[in-house]
Design a protein around this nucleic acid. Structure first.
Lengths: 221, 221
DNA sequence: GATGACGATATTGTTGACAATTTTATCAAT
DNA sequence: ATTGATAAAATTGTCAACAATATCGTCATC
């Protein structure tokens, strides 16, 4: 008898992941209502699991739940995005510091390889691919820092701004300065200058917010 | 007709608070199993609410839920505590920086008043009271920084180490150096030296972990 | 006394029915 | 056409019963 296909019902965590993904990729937009039955239909999960997942996401600040009105995707003000970036500066700066102190050669090689690919993206003007690789670059540093607590908190911070993280790279100038930042940071890391790497990471993220704020301002004008 | 006593059933959030409190104050110790019926008996909540609360706490990393075995208080290794302190250094340092830049006179006055009380505790050798006021001191800076995101994440970080935050102050020497740190930091804040305040805060928290690690080491010897 | 099988009890997981509330549709009055 | 009232439908909140699993105590066996 061949392996039976077992489409077991998704767990609460998996449904939460599913919703998170849809929020990240913009298929669920801020303000949109998340009706339990719809999610049940689309995921095949039971109602309790869906409710559990929504509660979970509420705890992460990703959705809002009003009594008898259900869940909806929470939207962030520009000021809240600013606060998120401030937290990112602090945590990811620390991660860069610790990564520089702890990183083993294998990780350094992977980072170097990623950097080469990023350079290629700049030459070929491929902002989309750059965005994806940029995410990997940052994640590699965070995961490589050996601090799971910081990694967890950063992951949570990033979800609501995930889409914004790609926007800026359609600006040719930002693409180049961001890549230059990465190159400089890599040099500092390889040189073992932990404090320098931390400062550079904070500056880099701070600049990232500045361009973002500029774009948003134009958008809302 | 006088106001009727209305003991409405507690919400999931309130039960979660209740459990958090008990974990903080050590009435629920790491490893202890949290049986649903017990919590129902003690809080008067319905089972769904209790389950919701436990899931919530699992999301915060405070309890562990195993299938068909239920929830138990998660215990942190010393390395995880180290990671938490590392995250605190980053976030609370940033908070101190922003507090210095933004704080209005009213907050500065409150901070000064707290400092006076802390000084008194040192003179009178009152480590318990010092611990409580110390918490307030730190919280005042975080709340006063104007960054709700950072405040939220710090609150979460602090729950599992809440009891540890008091332990160190029974060491006379730590009590004095901690207070000296506070005094120096207050001076930097009043002088408007944001970078200095940030560095001082990070150093202060880092030192806090060092004494803690020393105590734990002795304990486990 | 130690070990393992077995049943009784305790505990958690899931489902479905029903209550409370909001949202939508309908239609009369102006 | 707009408003407002009313009923119907949709949606969420709650609870209790039942299923699945784990835990504990008992007893026979070695």
């Amino acid at each position: 008898m061949p392996d039976q296909e077992t489409p077991r019902a998704p767990t609460g965590q998996e449904i939460a992941d599913w919703v998170r993904q849809r929020i990240r990729t913009g298929r669920f937009v801020p303000g949109q209502r998340l009706v339990e039955v719809d999610i049940i239909r689309q995921t095949g999960a039971s109602r309790s699991k869906v409710r559990e997942a929504l509660k979970r996401l509420e705890g992460e600040g990703l959705v809002e739940i009003e009594e008898f009105r259900g869940a909806s995707v929470r939207s962030s003000t520009l000021d809240e995005v600013r606060q998120i970036y401030r937290a990112r500066m602090a945590l990811e700066g620390m991660a860069a510091h610790d990564f520089t102190q702890n990183a083993d050669p294998a990780l350094l090689a992977r980072l170097q390889a990623l950097q080469d690919q990023l350079d290629a993206c700049v030459r070929e003007r491929a902002p989309d691919r750059f965005g994806r690789l940029n995410n990997e670059w940052h994640r590699l540093i965070v995961e490589g820092s050996g601090n799971k607590v910081i990694a967890d908190h950063l992951q949570r911070l990033n979800v609501p701004i995930h889409r914004l993280l790609f926007e800026s790279f359609y600006d040719e100038e930002r693409l180049q300065t961001a890549n230059a930042d990465h190159q400089a940071m890599l040099a500092l890391i390889l040189a073992g200058d932990a404090d320098g790497a931390e400062r550079a990471m904070r500056q880099h993220i701070g600049d990232g917010f500045e361009t973002l704020a500029r774009i948003e301002d134009e958008f809302y004008r």
